[in-house]
Deep mutational scan, measured.
Amino acid sequence: RPRTAFTQNQIEVLENVFRVNCYPGIDIREDLAQKLNLEEDRIQIWFQNRRAKLKR
């Protein structure tokens, strides 16, 4: 699968959610997927990668 290119707006929304909860449940991820026009699994991976970035 090709790399997902997130828009600046999508990143802002994801970062705002991350600040509140870095482990969002499936319900939050599915809601975000619908709002941001992305697949839920892409959102899940984004949070996984963002948590890894935080640990660095």
Rank of each mutant, 00 (worst) to 15 (best):
R1Y: 15
R1L: 07
R1G: 05
P2S: 15
P2E: 15
P2A: 12
P2M: 15
R3H: 05
R3K: 10
R3P: 11
T4G: 13
T4V: 12
T4K: 13
A5H: 14
A5N: 15
F6Y: 11
F6E: 06
T7C: 03
T7P: 03
T7R: 04
T7Q: 04
Q8F: 05
Q8D: 10
Q8V: 13
N9M: 15
N9G: 10
Q10F: 00
I11T: 09
I11W: 07
E12P: 00
E12Q: 14
E12D: 14
V13L: 04
V13D: 02
V13N: 07
V13G: 04
L14C: 13
L14Q: 00
E15Y: 04
N16Y: 04
N16E: 10
N16W: 02
V17Q: 06
F18R: 02
R19D: 03
R19I: 07
R19Q: 09
V20P: 01
V20A: 11
N21G: 08
C22K: 07
C22Q: 14
C22M: 15
Y23T: 10
Y23L: 07
P24M: 01
P24L: 06
P24R: 00
G25K: 13
I26R: 12
D27A: 08
D27F: 14
D27H: 05
D27E: 13
I28Q: 09
I28M: 03
R29M: 15
R29P: 02
E30H: 14
D31H: 06
D31K: 15
D31I: 14
D31R: 11
D31G: 09
A33K: 04
A33L: 00
Q34R: 13
Q34P: 03
Q34F: 01
K35S: 05
K35H: 03
K35F: 03
K35G: 03
L36M: 10
N37D: 09
L38N: 04
L38D: 03
L38M: 07
E39H: 06
E39S: 12
E40F: 10
D41F: 10
D41R: 12
D41T: 12
D41E: 13
R42F: 06
R42S: 13
R42K: 14
I43F: 04
I43G: 00
Q44T: 12
Q44M: 10
Q44C: 12
Q44N: 11
Q44V: 09
I45N: 14
I45Q: 13
F47C: 01
F47D: 04
Q48A: 14
Q48M: 11
Q48W: 01
N49A: 14
N49M: 12
N49H: 08
R51N: 10
R51W: 02
R51T: 07
A52F: 06
A52N: 11
K53L: 11
L54N: 14
L54R: 04
K55E: 15
K55S: 06
K55W: 04
R56G: 13
